[in-house]
């Protein structure tokens, strides 16, 4: 314990957005120092009972997804915002923490604040906490993602006025009403970027009889994905394995088709927002109606998603500046505020 404190002197306080798709690390006074996919490639040694070693982590591991030989497995250890593989998550966190302290001679032992989905259970939170402690963190704090996202987006969370934030991540979408540094209402639905990809894969298999991988689906979503019919129609050539012929074929997909494919997960998100508005106390609801809903997270980058929610709710919808990093930045700011106020105003544990 004492040694950890000593090592802590040589470590930066970190805020980690341990996301399903990407992990971001915000270091105090430095900003975002790491933004890598939450993917780990594991190499299995030959023979029975062979050792498992980490072959790659982050960007290099993501490139291996769906392209690995028999002795390598590329894993996404986070599923739907929570830990699916405890050991691999710990290794990944360890790697990332070491990476942001690469120039340090002494092994890092930072204070770490990790963002967790508001819908996560006690067990899931405990797993994340222990995983970070196992990765070398001196102290671990948890903060709920919508709160971190609101702080990161610059919402006046300390005011006695309701602010509504919708954070669409890789595995979950969180909606929350915040007032006076606290969450008045929150809801988490297990719909996110991954579900969008899955919906695109299913659509193409159903309509084109062609199988595509997750990486291709993600590319389609990013290039021509749209949540609301726009004036121009975008097209993209897609290659996949034709299920009937069994050989790779290419075809052209339009943004309208992607919109059609995404209808189901998108309606899940809009339903969650509507439900939140229904559950919000009237005074806070009025504040939200006056000022609008703020979108954060990688999902906010889906074209015209703000317009869809605007049309569905009739409220102004605002995309936060740099929505991808809002949660990590908000966590970092929460760490600073904790030090300034000498308490743990935002943390949940």
């Amino acid at each position: 314990m004492f040694l950890r404190r000593i090592r802590g002197l040589f470590s930066n306080d970190l805020s980690i957005d341990l996301g399903t798709a990407n992990t971001l690390i915000y270091a105090r006074d430095q900003g975002i120092v790491l933004n890598e996919p939450s993917v780990v490639a594991i190499r299995h040694d030959r023979g029975r009972g062979g050792n498992k070693t980490v072959a790659a982590v982050g960007e290099s591991a993501k490139k291996m997804l769906g392209r690995t030989p028999a002795n390598i497995t590329a894993i996404r250890p986070m599923k739907e915002g929570v830990i699916a593989d405890f050991t691999v998550t710990e290794k990944m966190l360890q790697y990332f923490i070491h990476k942001v302290h690469e120039s340090k001679i002494i092994r890092p032992s930072p204070r770490v604040l990790i963002c967790v989905p508001c819908g996560s259970t006690q067990v899931e939170r405990r797993a994340i906490k222990e995983s970070a402690a196992g990765a070398g963190a001196r102290e671990v704090y948890l903060i709920e993602e919508p709160m971190a996202a609101a702080i990161g987006a610059g919402l006046p969370v300390d005011e006695a006025r309701g602010s509504m934030v919708l954070d669409i991540g890789g595995g979950t979408s969180e909606v929350a009403i915040i007032s006076l540094n606290g969450i008045v209402y929150s809801n988490s639905v297990r719909i996110g970027g991954d579900k969008f990809d899955e919906a695109i894969i299913n659509y193409i298999r159903r309509n084109y009889g062609t199988l595509i991988g997750e990486a291709t689906a993600e590319r389609i979503k990013q290039k021509i994905g749209s949540a609301y019919p726009g004036n121009e129609v975008l097209e993209l050539e897609v290659k996949g394995r034709n299920l009937a012929e069994g050989i790779p074929r290419s075809f052209t997909m339009t943004s309208n088709e992607v919109l059609e494919a995404l209808q189901e997960p998108l309606s899940g998100i809009t339903d969650a927002v509507k439900k939140a508005l229904e559950q919000t106390p009237p005074e806070l609801g009025a504040d939200v109606a006056e000022r609008g809903i703020v979108l954060t997270g990688g999902g906010a980058l889906l074209r015209d998603l703000d317009r869809l929610i605007e049309e569905e709710t009739g409220l102004p919808v605002i995309i936060a500046e740099d929505p991808l990093t809002c949660v990590a930045r908000g966590g970092g700011r929460a760490l600073e505020l904790m030090d300034e106020r000498g308490g743990d105003a935002f943390t949940v544990e």
């Binding site: 430095q30 900003g31 975002i32 120092v33 790491l34 933004n35 890598e36 960007e59 990476k99 942001v100 690469e102 120039s103 610059g154 740099d322 990093t325 930045r329 700011r333």
Partner: peptide
């Protein structure tokens, strides 16, 4: 409260290599 310039792993790619 503008955040420090953000780029994918800025420190990892270039900064601090000499120091390291």
């Amino acid at each position: 409260d503008a955040p420090v310039t953000i780029s994918p792993s800025p420190r990892l790619a270039s900064d601090g290599q000499a120091d390291k």
